Each structure stands twice: as C-alpha cells, then as structure tokens.
Simulated scan of single mutants.
Amino acid sequence: MPQGATATMSNVSLDRRAWNIRRKALLMGEVQGQGYIGQALGVADVLAVSYFHALNHRPGDPEWQGRDRFLLSIGHYAIALYAALMEAGILPEEELETYGMDDSRMPMSGMAAYTPGMEITGGSLGHGLGIGVGMALGLRQKGSDAFVYNLMSDGELGEGSTWEAAMSAAHHDLSNLICIVDFNDQQADGPSTKMLCSEPLDAKWEAFGWYVQRVDGNDIPALVAAFDRARTLSEKQPRVIICDTRMCKGVPFLEDREITHFVRVEPEEWAKALDVLEQGKPQ
C-alpha cells in the first residue's frame, strides 16, 4: 500500500473493491437509465488495483502535491471513475443519486472543474497521454517521485496524437509515466480491431521505446504484478500495461449482448443486473 493512502483501505480485498465499484456504477446507471456501464463493469478490476494497491494518494486531500496523478483520457468512462472515487472516499457516496443531473459534481462525461479527484477533462479522445507527458515532465522538473497514470481506450490507439505522445515520452525517458490501455475491442461502430487494427500492439509500443506488459485486465493478481513491475522497473523508460478486459464483466446477461459499447439496459433490467452481481459477491 503506498504510504499516502489511508491504512483502512487495506482491510478490504481487491476483489471486493472491484465488486463495490461495479455495484456503484450500476446504481448510477439506474439513476439515469443509461450510461457507459459496459466499460465501467469491464474496467472495475483495473480501477480497484489502481486506487487500492498502486496509487499514492490521500482521500481526504485530493489536491495533495505528493499524490500520483490518475488521468482519465476516456471521458465517457466517468461513471467508472466516479464509482472508484466514491469507493476510495474521495467523493461522498450520498452523491450517487445525483449522477448526470443539473448541478451534479458527476456529469456524464468527466470534467476536472466539477469533480474532486478528476485530474483532467477527457473529451475528444487521444489527448490524455499527451497531457500525461507534460505532467510527468513537470513532476520530474520539480524533483517529485510521483507517478502519472493515464487510462486510455483501445479506440484511442487510432489517434495520431497518442503515438506522438508515446514517441515524446520515450525521447524524454519518462520513467514516471505509466499508460494503461483498456483493450475491450469495442468502439461505437464495432470491434476496435475491425475499425483500425492496432495489432501487434505489444511490438508497436516496444518499437516506440516503452516497457510493455500485456495482461488479463479482469485478473486481479495479474494486474497487481504488472503494476508492481511498472512501478519498480529500473530502466529509464515509460511503461505501458495493456489490459484485455471483457465488457459488462460480472453481469453475464449483459456480457452476452452483441452491442456493448453503449449497452442498452431496459428499465426492469437494472434491478436484475444488481441481483446477478450480488450472486457473485466476494468476501
């Protein structure tokens, strides 16, 4: 556990943290009757390991200068990050029912000006990694030992700005930059690999000078090992963890839907989804 995080966080298993994040995301989706719930369920394990194992942060002081920065490049994943921020105690859980409403601190697309713990406003895809490069350079100039984490989608691999940032990070030997790619192979128009295939992805990142790991993004022990390796690597190079995740993970009847990028959930199915999730509740 990073020294800046509260000790009480270690009392709950990472499996349970991920389950709690999924549940909170479903409850928020039920409030609006919609949301990018497939992504939230799929990336919950990555967020649990990020906030409750890897990140150095203080829940009561989200602006603490010594914190690791977690950038949500994919603004439409905001429902997932809000759930993680609530689970971490950065956002009060009582605000859950305000999700997406007027004057809420949790708009449907993430905005840094609204939400404690939201480091950047993610919108047009492909900008998060470039911002992360700037932050990593700035922190190094300050002599900070903080890390910058950038969570991005596989769809952003089709953006030229992503690869410009990747090249720049390697040029500057940014060993304090860790990119996390959520590879769920889904975009608005269909599978990512059919829209603009980025494979062989490991080899591409390596060619750009990055230390690469690829793991099952729904396997918590594998994620823990990958994050630990990324943090402790001695080589002076940026690090990327490619996480292969399953959309709607934890709710099988939603996992089986053909279209999961913006999965359609009928009004009566929210309660069903919560019931199904409850059946798999970990200790």
Rank of each mutant, 00 (worst) to 15 (best):
H172M: 12
G280L: 01
S10A: 14
M1H: 13
R22N: 09
L254A: 06
D275F: 02
L81Q: 10
E95N: 11
R16D: 04
E93D: 15
E199G: 03
E30F: 03
R257T: 00
N184K: 12
R22M: 10
V31N: 07
L91M: 10
G122H: 01
E63H: 10
Q34D: 15
G38L: 04
I120Y: 04
P62V: 11
M152F: 13
G117L: 07
Q279M: 08
H57P: 04
E278A: 15
I74N: 14
L129E: 02
L26C: 04
I21G: 00
I120T: 15
D219Q: 08
V276P: 02
L129Y: 02
A112L: 03
S153I: 00
T115H: 05
Q187E: 14
R67V: 02
A222I: 00
S168N: 12
V133E: 08
W205T: 00
E258G: 14
A83V: 06
D216Y: 12
F253N: 01
G138I: 02
G138C: 09
D256I: 07
D189K: 06
R246W: 06
A203R: 15
P200A: 12
S13D: 02
R231Y: 10
S124H: 10
K204N: 05
A273W: 00
A165L: 07
M111C: 05
Q283L: 09
A25W: 01
R239L: 04
G75A: 06
G122M: 03
T232I: 05
F52A: 11
Y77W: 13
